[in-house]
């Protein structure tokens, strides 16, 4: 098995995540699919760091994790606030800014 296979797996997971973002309407599930895309990108980073024999890819994956954690915290807080006021967590219903 060529270690390139990790890159193919990363591509598959990323496109599956993108599919989930487009299909699902529950805001939290959409958010989880975004997390899947971030994780797929992390896998690609680690594979490339192994290819080059340097640790920079792992450092970048580390920072991606940190930023993803911060993003999840704020994003879930926003979803909770929207749910509290509008009683719906569907992304189709958050349409007040629609012309």
């Amino acid at each position: 098995m060529n270690p390139d296979s990790y890159l193919y797996l990363s591509a598959i997971l990323f496109s599956l995540g993108a599919l989930g973002v487009l299909i699902r309407r529950d805001a939290i599930v959409v958010f989880m699919c975004i997390e899947l895309m971030l994780n797929a990108a992390n896998l690609a980073f680690v594979t490339f760091s192994r290819m080059h024999g340097r640790l920079d890819g792992q450092i970048f994956a580390f920072f991606t994790m940190v930023v993803a954690a911060a993003e999840v915290v704020v994003g879930l807080a926003i979803i909770i606030t929207v749910f509290r006021t509008r009683r719906s967590a569907s992304v189709d219903d958050a349409n007040l800014l629609k012309y």
Partner: peptide, 9 residues
């Protein structure tokens, strides 16, 4: 992983 991603979606 792929099964899990499909389950997620």
């Amino acid at each position: 992983s792929v099964l899990g991603a499909l389950g997620l979606i």
